[in-house]
Design a protein around this nucleic acid. Sequence first.
DNA 1: AAGTCGGGGTA
DNA 2: TACCCAGACTT
Length: 311
Amino acid sequence: MLQQTRVDTVIGYYHRFLQRFPSIAALAEAKEEEVLSLWQGLGYYSRARNLHRAARLITDRYGGQFPHTYEEVRSLPGIGDYTAGAILSIAFDQPYAAVDGNVLRVITRLTGLEKDITRPETKKELSQMVRPMIPLAHSGDFSQGLMELGALVCLPLEPLCDQCPVQSLCTAYATGRQNELPVRKKRDKPLKTIFYRVAVIQDQDCLLLEHRRKETLLGQMWGFPLVEEGSARSLESLFWEKYGLKIKLGKNLGRVTHIFTHQVWQMDISSYLLLPGTAFASTLHWIPEEEQKNLAIPTAFRKVLQVIKPG
DNA sequence: AAGTCGGGGTA
DNA sequence: TACCCAGACTT
């Protein structure tokens, strides 16, 4: 959960998740739908799917016992170099480094390394620099201490060098370069904006929602039916071709903008009337109000819900 | 190496 | 706006 996500954001999800899935076995037995539902709003949903897969894999391959070697842990889905190092050092007190964004920042400043930290090669070099610092005992404390130093003292902007326990060892402090480090290549192209028309189709207290195809962004999550605008074709024919929906335009309900890491969605929302006799695609389902809160609906579509059902 | 994948807090 | 967050995976 903590991958690319702040601790404060995670805490609530963490407690709800562990209450529902208190063991590897409990998680392994669950349906993916329910795992995603508990993850909704947290983002990077492949993390939830990988965690679920890992639980099943541990159950099948290791008899439910979490593996204790770096290679075995690293090979689990969703566990990369950072997470493997974190688990081995913190959970099992083995001398591995957990090099996250905090540690990259601390070490580049400490050593004055001016290379681009987004490059895999630079991350490897920094991991090599941490290795000889790892104590053979209590390496978990060392991992957490190094990350904590980055999170609380060696801040991205305006680090608190006066409070830093390793100030006397720090190259960046000595040279006054702490605000120039780390070096990180920035995005060159602006985000692409995609313009969508969202169809709100209601029948009493039911909404027509789509279970999104796996290959799409926000795949296997629930959302509103939508088509991309900009082509010469009419919206009605686009909905017909994509979903087999025969619908007639109702009134305009508003606009929602949602920013992802790599693209922006601008969604114009309209109510539509379902014309009789349509046999729409199997990905579409009538969802009654009481079930809507338990579905895995990501934030982009929660915003649409908010527009049509304020409060 | 570059692109993909969420969402929110902060200046 | 833009950056960054206890990154991993695919292309």
